[in-house]
Design a protein around this nucleic acid. Sequence first.
DNA 1: CCCGGAGCTGAGCGATGGCTGAAGAGGTGG
DNA 2: CCACCTCTTCAGCCATCGCTCAGCTCCGGG
Lengths: 217, 217
Amino acid sequence: MIEDAEAIGAAVSSALREAGYQVQVRPDGRDLEGELARFRPDLVVLDVMLPGRDGFMLLEVIRRTTGAGVVMLTARDGVADRLRGLDRGADDYVVKPFVLAELVARVSAVLRRLGRTPSTVQIGDLLVDADSAVVLRGDVPVELTATELRLLRYLAAQRGRVVGKTQILTAVWGYEDYDPNLVEVHVSALRRKLEEHGPRLLHTVRGLGYVLRADET
Amino acid sequence: MIEDAEAIGAAVSSALREAGYQVQVRPDGRDLEGELARFRPDLVVLDVMLPGRDGFMLLEVIRRTTGAGVVMLTARDGVADRLRGLDRGADDYVVKPFVLAELVARVSAVLRRLGRTPSTVQIGDLLVDADSAVVLRGDVPVELTATELRLLRYLAAQRGRVVGKTQILTAVWGYEDYDPNLVEVHVSALRRKLEEHGPRLLHTVRGLGYVLRADET
DNA sequence: CCCGGAGCTGAGCGATGGCTGAAGAGGTGG
DNA sequence: CCACCTCTTCAGCCATCGCTCAGCTCCGGG
């Protein structure tokens, strides 16, 4: 991410890390080429307004030297900026001020579109397809609500890793300091639907959180 | 698409995929014959400047071995190139640097001209012919208004994928931040006509959007 | 074996999302 | 200038969802 406002940079990078991405933040385009070569990003989040070289110049550098996706951050009324950015090959843009969850959603949408992320994840006999919003247990389709699906997607992205309820609250709801029971309620609902046609996949780790894992043997 | 600049390849392929096409990108003409036989493209987007065999040689191979359309990418001042390309049978050309939307438009224009566009899409027993604006449910013709047809075309191009109302608003109406009820009203009208003679095809996914999908199983 | 805290879940409610009929605005052709 | 048609807005309705709460169970430690 290239963003000179430190607060925004910190907030966004922690939200993206929560979602399972590796993130580097730089305040400007200084030695962009070197950074790109070193870090080899799949995607760059690019502020339009930057000290030194502005976002559009950096966009061209990125396009010329890498295959990375680009999501631009533009000011609310920067319609011209937006078109200019999309024209020159930005994959998407987000208007400031934005909700963190929206940025994260767009980032993963672009990555998916670029084929950098498998849109369908499999855990045991459970299939989660992000594009079509279809979830299958074996061959049986599972009907989920929007929140359940968001929760499942997050757990699927973190599969095999134990995630705390606090972590889930910030990643899925954007809440910072909240009643963990909210997570418990939705985990409960999710389990009822997921495990109706098969063994347990969503395990409780007492005192730590939850894991999505297929237990063989 | 044959394009050695990775950035351009990525941008174009994602734009074309958005428009509903299946795309493969190759950096050069290596084993072009094999690739053509395997992928059987309806159209090839061909960069003129390529390492190894240049675009014109590849153009001849394509013409000799397939019926595919060809759109060439030429440098700004390559007038000679352009004429040479058209002479030898390219269907159209786009000058670099180009606007993504223009390339997409030319690609679909060529496909339509060649009659290669599966200008007709089938979802279950629903037939949508984009050119003739004919829509059939089973054998029964369905009378749609202009807006309904645009909406249906978009959904058909994205079939199987859940599309949000916001996404529909920008794709079909060009609106940026608008009342989603507009979409709901037209979806409602579309359903009344489409589903008069058959089961539901245009499904609501609460909290996410709509999908055009034929449910078997 | 008992106790406390962690986790689970059914019930209830307010809020939201989605659908639709109706009416007005705009445009087109007769 | 009128009649018709399409598009859009609006408002009310309904179903469902998401959250809170409270009582319960379960598990592990002492």
